Amino acid sequence: MKTTGSYLRVFIFSIVGYFLLDNLGSSGDVSVFSEKPLMWVVLAVIILFYIACEACVEAIKNILYATLSDEAKARYDEKQALKEANQFKWIKEKYKQSLGTKPIEEEHEIILDHNYDGIKELDNKLPPWWVYGFYITIIFAVVYLVRFEVYKDYNQDEEYEVAVAEANLAIEEWKKTAKDLVDVNTVELLTEASDLSAGKKIFEVNCVACHKSDGGGGIGPNLTDEHWILGGGIKNVFRTISEGGRAGKGMIPWKTTLKPAEMAQVASYIFEFQGTTPAEPKAAEGEIWVDPDVSN
């Protein structure tokens, strides 16, 4: 059918348009279009409408074509054939030129004497694209030789070291915004109001039952004094939250429930209780912890 190409085009354009709209919706304040089935319906209606219009036009053409005389049909068919022959004519000609072959009617000029069981060989020239590609490789080889062997530009070891250094810088920049990569070795005390607010919400949902809302302690230890059962400091507190308390008793590990960034936030919020006075403080447990980095 002559309109098949048109159907394919409108289908592809519609799908591409949909995903463009979907991405715009995902990246901005607009609702994600993929969450709206109505978008699919609208696109389907557009496609069906376009196909119906194309089919109607084709049907009208066929009806009008049937009313033509044989002579008029012949002229129309000749015109259409000429139109199709001239379509992409420039590309077709350039493609033939790139092959570097002679037309069939001129092949007798380049036929060789080789004959094997009636099969003869043509002395066609190499395709221009192949020849030019070969010249380019020669030029590249000369430039490479002069640059790296004569003028001693960087070698592979130096190139590797530069690439690794650039990659490490990129990783460090990425880590600054990738909070969920934090672990017990890289965690730092968070002081931003947004982080402390998030930590407070996590504490109120998960920790109040054992430590009370003011950190005074209940089932769990008092968080307002300087005594720590498993060590103080952000790293020790983060490890305790992640891995849990003492074996057989104490807090459960939260690493399967909370994300690393969330554990860092709630660990940082816990230090907000230090020096405060809870309503019913539990007796101190553990030992007073002194930061070895500060004491040294």
Results as ranks from 00 to 15, higher is better:
7 Y>L: 09
7 Y>G: 12
10 V>Y: 03
12 I>H: 04
14 S>W: 04
20 L>R: 03
20 L>G: 04
27 S>A: 14
28 G>I: 06
28 G>L: 01
36 K>E: 05
46 I>N: 03
49 F>R: 04
50 Y>T: 11
51 I>Y: 09
56 C>K: 10
60 I>N: 07
61 K>G: 15
66 A>F: 12
66 A>S: 15
67 T>S: 14
71 E>N: 10
71 E>R: 03
77 D>L: 13
79 K>W: 03
82 L>K: 10
82 L>M: 05
84 E>H: 02
84 E>S: 06
85 A>V: 02
89 K>F: 07
95 Y>A: 11
98 S>I: 06
101 T>C: 04
102 K>D: 07
103 P>D: 07
105 E>I: 07
105 E>P: 05
105 E>C: 05
112 L>F: 05
112 L>N: 13
116 Y>S: 13
120 K>I: 07
123 D>L: 11
124 N>Q: 08
132 Y>G: 10
135 Y>C: 12
141 A>H: 03
150 V>G: 08
153 D>A: 15
153 D>K: 09
154 Y>C: 08
154 Y>H: 12
157 D>N: 06
160 Y>R: 01
165 A>V: 09
170 A>M: 11
171 I>R: 01
179 K>E: 12
180 D>Q: 01
182 V>I: 14
188 E>P: 10
190 L>C: 08
191 T>W: 06
191 T>R: 04
193 A>S: 13
194 S>L: 08
194 S>M: 02
199 G>V: 00
200 K>L: 12
202 I>L: 10
208 V>M: 04
213 S>K: 12
213 S>C: 03
214 D>E: 04
219 I>K: 09
225 D>L: 06
227 H>Q: 06
231 G>Y: 07
231 G>P: 13
235 K>P: 08
241 I>P: 07
243 E>A: 11
244 G>I: 00
247 A>D: 09
253 P>G: 09
255 K>I: 11
263 M>A: 15
269 Y>N: 07
273 F>L: 02
278 P>K: 01
281 P>V: 08
281 P>I: 10
288 I>A: 08
294 V>C: 01
